[in-house]
Amino acid sequence: MKFLAGSWVGDWLTGLGRIAALAVEATVSLLTLKVSWRDLLYQIYFIGIKSQSVVIITGGFTGMVLGVSAYIQFHKIKMDTATLAVVGVSMCDELGPVLTALMVAGRVGAAIAAEIGTMRVTEQIDALRTLATHPVDYLVVPRLLASTLALPLLTIESITIGIGASYLVGVYLLGIDPVYSWYNMLKYTGNIDLIFGLIKAFVYGGIIALIGCYKGMSCSVGAQGVGRATTEAVVYSSITILITNFFLTLILQRVATMGL
């Protein structure tokens, strides 16, 4: 293993190991300790408020553009009313959870890393420790919990807005028949699609909070350190979300076909 030390592969593996350790520590703390509801609600509120603008814009415009391009293809074969079905399935399965998570990573992941990183360089985390408070209990657990709860909610919001926006564009701009396309959408978008989307959102919420907290807590000293931690939190969580999405889709499809 010696040759790995100092190389980026080594750094990457160490980072992965530490994040896994952080996840374990946070889970243990979650299961054994009382969570402060006040902190948790505050964090959910904070994540929700911070993400509103990006979630609305991402959901709305993604739904609309998806509707338009699906319509252009379907129109050629006179299947205009299938448009919303495609929008529904792809918003629930992929675009809703992934795009929401990427946007939230940029806002909330960055904010978490910056806040905890600043606390670290100004010795506030050391102060917490001297006051007999475990930083994971006090800082990581509420954020992790809030993020895993808030992301599914935000994802539902973005799916709803996406479908709504594409309905409006389809019906009023492109002239699709509203009743049939709505019927087709409900027919082809199953509960399972929504469940997939929510499971994914839950996982990405965890990824965003864990990487944000980890980058903040391992931030190097100085204002530069905080800046770097923030950028890295966004970059790493976005990449991790995209990679995880592929494997999660595979796994969920497998489970679904086996289960049904």
Binding site: M119, T122, E123, A127, L128, R129, T130
Partner: peptide
């Protein structure tokens, strides 16, 4: 480890050179 130390640290109070107040 950090969790075992919590018990020990209850005995302690520390004043930091830079105060280290929680700024939130």
């Amino acid at each position: 480890n950090e969790r075992q130390l919590l018990r020990i640290r209850e005995k302690f109070g520390m004043v930091f050179q830079g105060a280290a107040l929680f700024d939130s």
